[in-house]
């Protein structure tokens, strides 16, 4: 791995102070996001098998389409997340009179996503172990017209013991690596937008902590 990428994970302050002196480039951040998207797509492909089983009674023979749609959704979702995160950081930094372009914020959001690739690989491994153990209820055509029944089926899937454990592991791993990303983003925002560490911590920590709290809440009510 490029030593500078190691710096992102372990010495983000030094990495971003050096990056601030260089020209803006989204090449590496985009590659990081793409890598994260590919891992997420593979994870989505596996999770798509659950959807395919659930929909087998409604759309027989459509398994591969469901797999591809889920995988593509995960891939695109990572890119959307990248842009949304950068947008939120950028807008919040405006409150603290932050300086610098959106592209630079986009770049630091991309670099900061690096820990989450590791998290995605871990959750992918967990999915490979747990998905075969999950009992998937089958959705029929009649049930598809009844939203209550559809919700009930989804609930049944989510309450499967294997599915529950997989969700817990995935959520905790995601929280850990999301906080790691937030740690990186705070340093990135400090250098890219000329914010004080306190303001940068508020710009990044605020939405990230809220997001993580939401994840914790969903974990609790599951």
């Amino acid at each position: 791995m490029n030593p500078s990428l190691i710096d992102i994970l372990l010495r983000p302050d030094a990495f971003f102070s050096r990056l601030a002196t260089e020209n803006e480039s989204l090449k590496i951040p985009a590659l990081i996001i793409l890598a994260g998207g590919i891992v997420a797509a593979i994870h989505g492909f596996l999770m798509g098998s659950l959807n395919a089983k659930m929909m087998a009674g409604v759309m027989p023979g459509m398994d591969i389409i469901l797999y591809l749609v889920t995988a593509a959704g995960a891939l695109i979702g990572v890119f959307i997340f990248w842009i949304l995160a950068a947008g939120v950081f950028y807008l919040l930094s405006l409150l603290f009179k932050g300086q610098g372009s959106f592209n630079r914020v986009l770049a630091i959001a991309g670099y900061g996503y690096l820990p989450q690739i590791a998290g995605s690989i871990l959750t992918l491994a967990a999915a490979i172990v747990y998905i075969p153990k999950i009992t998937v209820p089958v959705l029929t055509k009649a049930a598809l017209t009844d939203p209550a029944m559809t919700a009930e089926v989804t609930q049944a899937l989510m309450h499967d013991p294997a599915m529950r454990e997989l969700t817990q592991i995935t959520t905790l791993v995601s929280i850990v690596f999301m906080l790691w990303s937030a740690h990186i983003w705070i340093y990135g925002m400090t250098h890219s937008r000329g914010l004080s560490p306190r303001d940068a911590a508020i710009c990044v920590g605020g939405p990230v902590v809220l997001y993580v709290l939401y994840m914790t809440y969903t974990l609790g009510v599951m």
Partner: peptide
């Protein structure tokens, strides 16, 4: 009750992050 442990772990992680910063 089986969700209590992961929730507690998640809260501890958040507190560690906030406390560290």
């Amino acid at each position: 009750s089986s969700n209590l442990l992961p929730v507690a772990v998640a809260v501890v992680l958040i507190l560690l992050f906030v406390g560290f910063w």
